[in-house]
Nucleic acid binder design. Structure first.
Lengths: 343, 343
DNA sequence: CTGAAAGCGCTTACAG
DNA sequence: CTGAAAGCGCTTACAG
């Protein structure tokens, strides 16, 4: 199978390579009849330009990378990244970009990856995920002038492009919902592991404060997003008799529910929970929890849009987008409203 | 920031570009002192070869693709793909390959993607996922002589490289386990959607047959891997009073459990279930199910190994690997053994 | 073991 | 609007 090149197309169409290249790239200044002739030949032959050659000549690749950290074990099981990747993929498909995926399993690997991405010059830009513990990766990118968009936010990095969910609002909405149902003794299992976790906790605080309820640290537990941490946390909080809980990730809700069950109590009859993340149905807790739904998919999509904008138009003001969350009220809440009022 | 090229290294080391290229590529016939000199300069300057140029010149890219289909809605939420991707990523990292991810959301997109991968010449090879409904993609690859490895198997495609879990054995093990516990009225929710589903069902049949129990189609329901299908299926099977169930995916187990709960029964006290997939703890059913654990991660890793082998050494006999499953007995099974014998 | 040079398949000033 | 030609940064016969 002979690879067909631009030279052959030029020959068949009786024009120069330059002209073929121009119609390929949609330049405007090509005589219509010639354009059509070339296009016909291209269609007939099924020719597609060699991506790599184009890339070398033009110095951009139509390829962007997605960088995801993975913990020591298999942490890439988080459906969050799936939804994100799906959104990103949809956007890259749509823009005819190709998506390179970089999962690193240690900080060292992360550094090497980034360095090699930079040196190798094969990517136009990067979508970075915020939750890497190390603040070193980002400066590396900035120094190399590699365009990137951060998903989420990081402390101390204000002058960069990012898209994030409004986590503070999310925590606020969740807590407010519980308050509106009449609860006052509302506990929380949250996390100080990253900015998102902080923000959600701040949202909780604000809602409580607005309701005139003083912060009771005995009702607050900081987990690490793992099921187990939440399980332990819930066991610790149970003696404090919370009527309701705001748990700041879906995985942690599962841990909390487990502890509640083991104590012989049930959700939501004894303790109402509002969760976070709104996983796809197949992965949801049983009973289905009222949750804050993050626009994860949308976040990915928008990150790509921003990145492409930044690539084609460098050195502009930071583009920073914050997307709202949605409160999804499920059956468990109905139960509460039916009169399972706090003791 | 001036991009540093092989020419500059050659200049600094006072050798030709060809020589630099040779040490870069680890050729053996370079005088040690020169090799060292060049390597020192490379290290000092932090030079890394331009990936794309190398690619154009050498005609291979050190980049492999992973092709995943996604349903009309967000179906890429399946943790299966996460584990798979993680395994693949680990292997590509290790071999210094870069991973391009192609998720397509329609068959049309799938075709376009494959076509463009082929024409564009930017990938050395592909890891294909078997569950695309359409048998057209694979022949397309074969025709283009694009190296690929299939994860899973497809009917009628025998002469290709693949790695798969031993699904028949999995279904057999699951059912056998239930039989060993003393159950005889064992139902199944399986799936005819793909070969894996078929195989698991065949495993169920074989185990039942070996136990001398005739196949009772009233105890068999074919779902489509969705939670809902299994939910409906379980509701249908419940009047048949199965003592135990083999459910052929974890997501479907959740649906089955839901139906069982709604009927006022419990797992495993009233109905024992063996599931399939063995999701990570955070995503498991509650109560934790005894399941067949697929070597998903390993599957991904091995697929990459095979692919690289095939790329560097084309036109060889099909490499076909079938990995065994593992039966993971969880608490729910303990309960059964404690004497929750069938009625 | 080493170098000079052609070539990978495009894009893009430059000149007209 | 169009073409001839240089160039992107490497690799790889070929010759020595």
């Amino acid at each position: 199978m002979k690879k067909i090149t631009i030279a052959k197309i030029a020959e068949l169409a009786e024009v120069s390579q330059a002209t073929v290249s121009r119609v390929l790239n949609g330049y405007v200044h090509v005589r219509p009849e010639i354009r059509e002739r070339v296009q016909r030949i291209i269609a007939e032959t099924g020719f597609q330009p060699h991506h790599v050659a184009r890339l070398l000549a033009s110095n951009h690749s139509n390829m962007i990378g997605l960088v995801i950290p993975s913990g020591p074990q298999t942490v890439f099981i988080d459906p969050y990244f799936l939804a994100l990747t799906e959104g990103i993929s949809k956007a890259t498909n749509q823009h005819k970009q190709t998506l390179a995926l970089f999962i690193f399993h240690s900080l060292q690997e992360g550094h090497d990856t980034i360095q090699s991405i930079i040196n190798t010059g094969m990517l136009d830009g990067l979508v970075m995920t915020a939750d890497m513990k190390d603040g070193t990766l980002i400066p590396q990118l900035i120094a190399a002038e590699m365009p990137f968009v951060l998903i989420g936010r990081m402390e101390g990095l204000d002058e960069i492009h990012y898209v994030d969910a409004d986590n503070l609002e999310g925590g606020y909405m969740a807590t407010k919902h519980l308050l509106d149902l009449g609860y006052t003794r509302i506990g929380t299992i949250c996390s100080g592991e990253n900015k998102s976790g902080d923000d959600r906790f701040q949202g909780y605080r604000r809602a409580m404060q607005e309701a005139g309820i003083e912060l009771d640290m005995n009702l607050v537990y900081f987990g690490d997003y793992s099921l187990n941490s939440a399980y332990n946390g819930m066991k610790k909080l149970l003696p404090e008799c919370p009527e309701a809980m705001f748990v700041s990730s879906d995985t942690m809700s599962l841990g909390a529910i487990k502890a509640i069950r083991e104590a012989g109590l049930t959700v939501p009859d004894d303790i109402a929970i509002v969760g976070y993340d709104d996983l796809p149905p197949a992965l949801q807790a049983e009973p289905p929890l009222t949750t804050i739904q993050q626009p994860i998919y949308e976040t990915g999509r928008i990150a790509v849009e921003i990145l492409l904008e930044v690539i084609s138009n460098p050195r502009q003001q930071p583009i920073q987008t914050i997307l709202p969350n949605k409160l999804i009220v499920r059956a468990s809440c109905g139960a509460l409203q039916r009169g399972n009022q706090p003791q």
